[in-house]
């Protein structure tokens, strides 16, 4: 009867589709992404459609979210960063709602797949590199040389800076994936205990399940979405201002 605590992360093709040799089958994760996209779109469009001076509940929620994302961008990138508002807002809302909807029993947490978080992180990092080279040309390579490095240190500092740059997308991807996977594994283990223990003790893991689920909903899910997006802002901001190596100068 013992199932692996990782079984919620398994994916099975629901509608097998193969196109030109590529496997584009529809599985639970794909359906969850569609649901999230549809939900976020409907929610934000409805929130934005009323535009009353005294906002209703939904408009209020929309305004809090938009204000929050705007504050995040202005804090890290300044006014120039507002060009990236659509990208940042999409990322934030998508990740946030993936994290949240995945906590409903029976659904699937898309962000617990490292391929999903990895593609997001890779795309964000590639964008920041393209932006940096487009704005600054080869001077952008200066981010590999920390300000005020003596010449004889360069052979040591350049590899270190190169690794610390390349670690950025990895840390983005791993952080979100690991947090989501760990949280859901704990939930699975706890709920497995509820099922397998006799009723006079099973309330204990059940209470723990509820507690961990609440913790995930209120803290981990929003914080992980927040960290992913604010680091996106920071990386794009570094590429714009070329200050990745001396942001504490001010």
């Amino acid at each position: 009867m013992e199932e692996s605590p990782l079984h919620p992360f398994e994916l099975h093709d629901l509608i097998p589709i193969s196109l030109g040799g590529f496997d584009i089958s529809v599985n639970k994760a794909v359906i969850m992404m569609w649901v999230v996209v549809a939900l976020v779109t409907v929610l934000m469009v409805m929130a934005g459609s009323a535009r009353r001076l005294v906002p209703g509940k939904l408009q209020n929620l929309g305004e809090i979210l938009v204000d929050f994302i705007r504050a995040m961008i202005l804090d890290t990138m300044g006014k120039d960063g507002m060009k990236f508002f659509p990208l940042i807002a999409t990322l934030f809302l998508f990740i946030l709602f993936c994290n949240w909807l995945g906590l409903i029993p029976g659904t699937y947490t898309v962000t617990s797949q490292i391929i999903v978080t990895g593609v997001f992180a890779g795309a964000v990092y590639t964008l920041s590199l393209m932006l940096g080279f487009a704005l600054h040309g080869l001077r952008f390579l200066g981010i590999l040389v920390p300000a005020g490095t003596p010449g004889w240190m360069l052979p040591l500092m350049i590899p270190i800076e190169l690794i610390s740059q390349l670690a950025r997308p990895v840390s983005l991807a791993v952080r979100l994936f690991a947090n989501m996977t760990a949280g859901h594994t704990i939930l699975t283990v706890l709920f497995g205990m509820v099922v397998s223990l006799p009723f006079y003790v099973s309330w204990l893991p059940f209470a723990a399940t509820l507690f961990v689920n609440g913790l995930e909903t209120l803290l981990i899910a929003p914080i992980q979405a927040y960290i992913f997006t604010i680091l996106t802002c920071v990386y794009l901001g570094d590429a714009i201002t070329l200050h990745g190596h001396s942001e504490h100068a001010h």
Binding site: N179, I227, L231
Partner: peptide, 21 residues
Amino acid sequence: YAGLGQAVRIGTELLAALIVG
């Protein structure tokens, strides 16, 4: 929240650089 965000960031920061290196 800012502090909490900071705290959960730093651990992965170390790990990711080790993986890449």
